[in-house]
Design a protein around this nucleic acid. Structure first.
Lengths: 343, 343
DNA sequence: AAGCTTTAAGTTACCCGTAACGTAAATGCG
DNA sequence: CGCATTTACGTTACGGGTAACTTAAAGCTT
């Protein structure tokens, strides 16, 4: 009655063995190629494998407990942000080349989503987890500690990680950008970003940025768009609001390049010249930043390399190789031509 | 000796049951909330669950064969292409809201990679598969047919799908763009894209495009960059090569928006005015296309909606609801301002 | 209070592949 | 040729959870 079609129709090892006239164990040995059978037997078994279209059930293997799974859970805040898409691509390609599969989780930047996803994915006995960000809910942290599997926290470099960490120091990158803009002669500087109820890397960047600017005698005017994803449109409207507030900023630093493009577009729509009338600086250095007419001032982070490094650390740990638990992937300021040159 | 830490340390249901002084079965019933136990027993079990930090092992449940897994395999060519990143986001969000997890596979546009991934992911007993594209290797096709699970082929609408299909008619979208550009008064039109050894949606678009242009008395000059991903730089250099070839094209249609941005940049770097000196048309309508100074002529495809539709079809099929097997998600031509207006 | 029904458990078997162990036949060797 | 060793298998048990069945106790009815 009840259709369990796939379960019933799936060919099992026993069926292959029976068809080949050998025991389950012999068939298993042939499939794993670990020896202990004759050529004739091997051919017989392999013939039936092809004939019946047998596909092994990895669930059973892992479940038997003699092997760990080949899954790695990877949590990413969202893919609308090109940066994270590239990080994910770097991770998946590298994991894939080592025979591991990515189980994706989009956390939408919330700890609750992350916690739910962690609970679910742990129930699938993953070989390890790669998580974006260093801030997790208390329950999540507890589950992660108890999981007993390798964990790589990426993006936001964490000097005391749960297990391993790779990323950059966001505070420093914000600080460097602040110092650079001050060096360009700006003092009254705006910031346009999105607001988050929980701590995250963007907030840390802003902290570093403020420290540099305010420590250098400047002023930071913040414009945080509520409940918006950090893309073009909030960049556009955030800029409009900031400029309308009468704060008289001479330069705007954005949470990321996408928002900066939105800002550029607003300024150009209003007939403002960049950088003559206003300076614009982004963060993240999207590929397109080097392809628009004016090179966007930004902060370059090697996204793909970051993803690959995370996957390498995971693979290394899974192979019991010694791995560094904390890796700084670095960033590089791109001067660009969208802020005035102080030279 | 050998550390199998996670295996040994993971708390099992039996341990919870023993701690609570009940049988495994009773504990199982409590956890599934299916009744047949007293309140006192429930509290006792739940107390131990919290105390020991028990996490169920879904592998065992699925393996037992009484439930299908909550995994859905999703293959995507690459995430460097923003379009596919958004499709994936749409899929994962929707699947997640129904308690399903995405197992990712990046196929790098090759059938061999896809086949390998399919083999692996099927061994994990997924509930279903969502595949980008309609062209699979013969072995892959055979495995898919035998798998006995729901399969959604996305992106390239397939009127006779393996199981279900959702996407757009790429031939028609190419045709419509060809007719539009002819209508703008262009006759000598270039195409810049990447070359693929296997059939794919971009090739189908080009076929439709050629049919419209050549059928209307025009000419298409193709410039296919070998072995390159379809992003900004091949767009830039492909444009350079096409213009250097002396074909005298008046307008260029690109494989996608990213390549078109590369072309725009090349033209602007060479001092050519768009659309006065040359027309530029992209495909895909990236979010940034509406944020640059000139609105890029393009073809809009509802990416996020496409992903969500795919996930909905999958969920529907898994819930034994009747679902349409073939869904056209549609496209819309964006006239933009990067081709001359024939009005 | 006897008899019946309901509730709250426990027991057994099973899913699929593999480790560990057992065994019979083939081979090697002096 | 007889004994030790290797090869080529087969057999049993197991992992973690659940379906199906069984059993004991409690509740209800008249």
């Amino acid at each position: 009655m009840k259709e369990k079609s796939n379960k019933n129709s799936r060919i099992s090892l026993s069926e292959v063995a029976r068809a080949a006239g050998v025991s389950k164990m012999t068939a298993s040995r042939v499939l794993r190629g670990e020896g202990g059978y004759s050529e004739k037997t091997r051919d017989k078994v392999m013939e039936k494998v092809d004939q019946l279209g047998y596909l092994p059930n990895r669930l059973a293997t892992v479940f038997a407990g003699d092997q760990s799974s080949t899954f790695v859970g990877v949590s990413i805040p969202d893919l609308g942000n090109e940066v994270f898409a590239q990080v994910l691509e770097g991770i998946d390609r590298k994991l894939g080349s080592f025979g591991r599969q990515t189980v994706l989780g989009l956390t939408q930047h919330t700890q609750q989503e992350e916690e739910n996803w962690i609970r679910t994915v742990l129930s699938w006995q993953p070989a390890g987890l790669i998580l974006t960000g260093r801030y997790h809910s208390p329950r999540a942290t507890e589950m992660l500690r108890n999981a007993g599997i390798p964990i790589v926290e990426i993006w936001d470099l964490n000097s005391s990680p749960l297990d391993m960490s790779v990323g950059i120091n966001h505070f420093d990158s914000g600080f460097d950008m602040g110092r650079y803009l001050m060096g360009c002669g700006y003092f009254n500087i705006g910031y346009v970003g999105t607001s988050h109820d929980t701590a995250n890397a963007a907030t840390t960047r802003l902290d570093g940025f403020c420290k540099a600017v305010e420590g250098g005698g400047g002023r930071v005017v913040k414009q945080l768009c509520l409940h918006d994803t950090a893309t073009y449109y909030p960049g556009f409207y955030g800029t409009e609001q900031l400029l309308a507030s009468g704060s008289g900023v001479e330069c705007i630093f954005y949470q990321n390049d996408a928002m900066a493009f939105g800002g550029l577009q607003y300024c150009s729509a209003k007939g403002m010249q960049v950088p003559q009338d206003i300076g614009i600086a982004g963060w993240g250095d999207l590929p397109i930043a080097s392809v628009i007419a004016r090179r966007l001032t930004s902060m370059h982070v090697p996204h793909l390399k970051l993803g690959q490094a995370a996957a390498e650390m995971m693979i290394g740990r899974l192979s019991d190789e010694p791995v560094e638990t904390c890796r700084d992937i670095g960033f590089r300021l791109i001067p660009g031509t969208t802020v005035r040159n102080n030279a």
